[in-house]
Amino acid sequence: MKAYLFPGQGSQFLGMGKNLYKNSHLAKKLFQLSDEVLGFRITSVMFEGSMDILKNTKYTQLAIYIYSVIKAKISNNFEPDMVAGHSLGELSALAAIDVFSFEDGLKLVNQRASIMQDICESTHGGMAVVFGLNDSMIEDACKKDHGIIVPSNYNSPEQLVISGEIQALRRVCSFLKKIGARKIFILPVHGAFHSPIMKPAQKKFKKIVNKIYFKNSKYPIYQNVTALPVIKSVDIKNNLVEQLTYPVKWKQSIKNMMDDGASTFTEIGPGNILQGLIKKILRKST
Score class of each variant (00 low, 15 high):
residue 204 K to T: 05
residue 137 M to C: 08
residue 153 N to G: 05
residue 279 K to R: 15
residue 70 I to M: 03
residue 265 F to N: 12
residue 8 G to D: 11
residue 20 L to R: 00
residue 94 L to F: 09
residue 118 D to N: 13
residue 182 R to N: 11
residue 139 E to Y: 10
residue 186 I to Q: 08
residue 139 E to R: 06
residue 113 A to I: 02
residue 153 N to T: 00
residue 159 Q to V: 01
residue 217 S to N: 11
residue 95 A to C: 09
residue 120 C to D: 14
residue 277 L to Q: 01
residue 246 Y to S: 14
residue 133 L to E: 07
residue 138 I to D: 12
residue 249 K to A: 00
residue 180 G to M: 01
residue 275 Q to A: 05
residue 216 N to V: 04
residue 55 K to G: 02
residue 87 S to M: 10
residue 142 C to D: 12
residue 11 S to L: 01
residue 191 G to L: 08
residue 220 P to W: 04
residue 241 V to L: 06
residue 130 V to G: 09
residue 188 P to G: 08
residue 28 K to F: 00
residue 255 K to R: 13
residue 163 S to H: 08
residue 28 K to L: 06
residue 33 L to K: 15
residue 185 F to V: 15
residue 90 E to A: 10
residue 199 K to H: 10
residue 46 M to F: 10
residue 169 L to R: 08
residue 71 K to T: 08
residue 177 K to M: 13
residue 52 D to C: 04
residue 121 E to P: 05
residue 106 L to N: 07
residue 66 I to K: 00
residue 73 K to N: 01
residue 196 P to R: 06
residue 216 N to C: 04
residue 127 M to L: 09
residue 37 V to D: 11
residue 55 K to P: 04
residue 238 N to Y: 04
residue 272 N to Q: 13
residue 45 V to F: 04
residue 158 E to S: 15
residue 82 M to S: 13
residue 19 N to W: 02
residue 139 E to T: 11
residue 169 L to S: 06
residue 166 I to W: 01
residue 41 R to P: 05
residue 280 K to A: 03
residue 278 I to M: 13
residue 210 N to W: 04
residue 272 N to G: 09
residue 236 I to R: 04
residue 12 Q to G: 01
residue 80 P to L: 06
residue 131 F to G: 00
residue 284 K to Y: 14
residue 39 G to A: 11
residue 258 M to N: 10
residue 107 K to D: 08
residue 59 Y to P: 05
residue 53 I to D: 13
residue 30 L to Q: 12
residue 32 Q to A: 11
residue 22 K to A: 14
residue 27 A to W: 01
residue 147 G to Y: 09
residue 254 I to E: 07
residue 44 S to Y: 12
residue 182 R to S: 14
residue 110 N to F: 11
residue 4 Y to L: 03
residue 133 L to I: 08
residue 244 L to M: 09
residue 247 P to F: 05
residue 43 T to W: 03
residue 96 A to D: 00
residue 184 I to P: 06
residue 185 F to W: 11
residue 162 I to V: 05
residue 13 F to S: 12
residue 241 V to G: 07
residue 63 A to H: 06
residue 263 S to D: 13
residue 101 S to Y: 02
residue 75 S to I: 00
residue 16 M to N: 08
residue 58 K to Y: 11
residue 251 K to E: 15
residue 175 F to A: 07
residue 40 F to S: 05
residue 19 N to E: 15
residue 38 L to D: 10
residue 15 G to R: 05
residue 250 W to C: 08
residue 8 G to H: 09
residue 164 G to Y: 03
residue 153 N to L: 10
residue 239 N to L: 15
residue 23 N to R: 04
residue 280 K to V: 00
residue 57 T to A: 09
residue 13 F to P: 01
residue 135 D to R: 11
residue 159 Q to S: 08
residue 6 F to K: 03
residue 228 L to Q: 15
residue 148 I to L: 15
residue 151 P to Y: 03
residue 81 D to T: 07
residue 90 E to Q: 14
residue 26 L to K: 14
residue 125 G to L: 08
residue 67 Y to D: 12
residue 27 A to T: 02
residue 126 G to T: 02
